[in-house]
């Protein structure tokens, strides 16, 4: 599977974001850390291109007509480097995956893991590092011929950054046999078990739009951490400060929504993002994605 890295671009020196309220103090520490980094890092180190490993695999060993499965993309990012979430933040480039299916297949949206939110001098950056797994849900047509083999082309594009940044591209081709019933789950299926799922699937949790409009999410707290909302920015959509109440093990999060149709560039109002419990790797995160009607 060819992997090509080229050019440098983007943000550098991102640092894990603590909380917005300690931004100023954080920047002082950040500046000190960066100053020391500048003394240590040589220019050759800045210019060396990291090798991001890219591969794609199906979540099952064989597919069945009409039965959904996932195409899983795996990126292995070298230590201290990162690529970008679907909303990269103030700079950078969202990681893109494109699956070219045979005729009749339905292709779902790309599912991302929860990012690590880091701080660049221009603002927060949503990064992905280490082993990164993205999934694309595929639904084959019911007319697929059993005994045949399908060929899927997968393309990915990413920006990998540490101090300098490089654009990278990867391609993969999957050949998957078609059987009456789906084959066994592959290792790739386990890679995506921890991807965020829709908030509606979280037990005892409700998410609803209320007049305002306000997105109200409530449910049981999680020992991993306090709930926070990470916005996936959409044209024309703005959010106010989330108000979060916690009482007797239940949280209520209310997020005021705004919409400027003039800035929407033709896209309808939708609120999307993640409800996260803790910001550590593997901490629970749930997807939010709702259309809403702005008040006039």
């Amino acid at each position: 599977m060819p992997t090509v890295d080229f050019q440098w671009v983007g943000s550098r020196y991102p640092t894990p974001l603590a909380t917005p309220v300690c931004y100023r103090g954080f920047m002082l520490i950040y500046a000190a850390l960066m100053a020391s980094t500048c003394l240590i890092a040589g220019s050759d180190d800045l210019q060396s291109r990291p090798r991001v490993q890219f591969e794609a695999a199906a979540s099952v060993s064989s597919i069945a007509p009409g039965t959904p499965f996932d195409v899983v993309c795996r990126f292995v990012v070298p230590p201290k480097w990162h690529i970008y979430w679907k909303d990269p933040g103030t700079g950078g480039l969202a990681t893109k995956v494109h699956v070219q299916p045979p005729p009749g297949f339905k292709v779902g949206k790309v599912r991302f893991p929860a990012p690590v939110t880091m701080l660049d001098p221009t603002g927060p950056v949503n990064a992905l590092d280490g082993r990164v797994h993205l999934a694309v849900a595929m639904t084959p047509p019911t007319t697929l011929a059993v005994g045949s083999e399908i060929v899927l082309g997968v393309e990915a594009e990413w920006l990998v950054c540490k101090e300098a940044c490089f654009l990278g591209r990867g391609e993969a081709t999957l050949r998957i046999p078609v059987t009456v019933k789906p084959g066994s789950a592959t290792a790739a299926a386990t890679w995506i078990q921890s991807l965020p799922r829709p908030i509606e699937k979280r037990p005892h949790t409700t998410a609803e739009l209320r007049p305002g409009p306000v997105l109200r999410i409530s449910g049981p707290c999680d020992p991993a951490g306090s709930p926070i909302f990470l916005l996936e920015s959409r044209p024309g959509v703005s959010v106010g400060d989330a108000v979060i109440h916690t009482k007797t093990g239940v949280f209520v999060m209310e997020i005021p929504l705004g919409y400027d149709s003039g800035d929407s560039i033709g896209q309808p109002p939708r609120i999307a993002g993640l409800v996260r419990f803790g910001v550590g790797r593997g901490d629970p995160a749930w997807e939010v994605d709702f259309p809403f009607t702005p008040e006039r």
């Binding site: 671009v9 983007g10 943000s11 550098r12 500046a31 960066m34 100053a35 103030t90 700079g91 950078g92 480039l93 660049d120 001098p121 221009t122 950056v125 940044c165 920015s233 044209p235 024309g236 400027d260 003039g262 800035d263 929407s264 560039i265």
Partner: peptide, 19 residues
């Protein structure tokens, strides 16, 4: 007339400010 849109999220490299 006022521009519409008046704001679209910018894209590109982050500005490489000094510290």
């Amino acid at each position: 007339e006022p521009p519409s849109p008046s704001h679209v999220k910018s894209w590109g490299c982050s500005v490489k400010y000094g510290l």
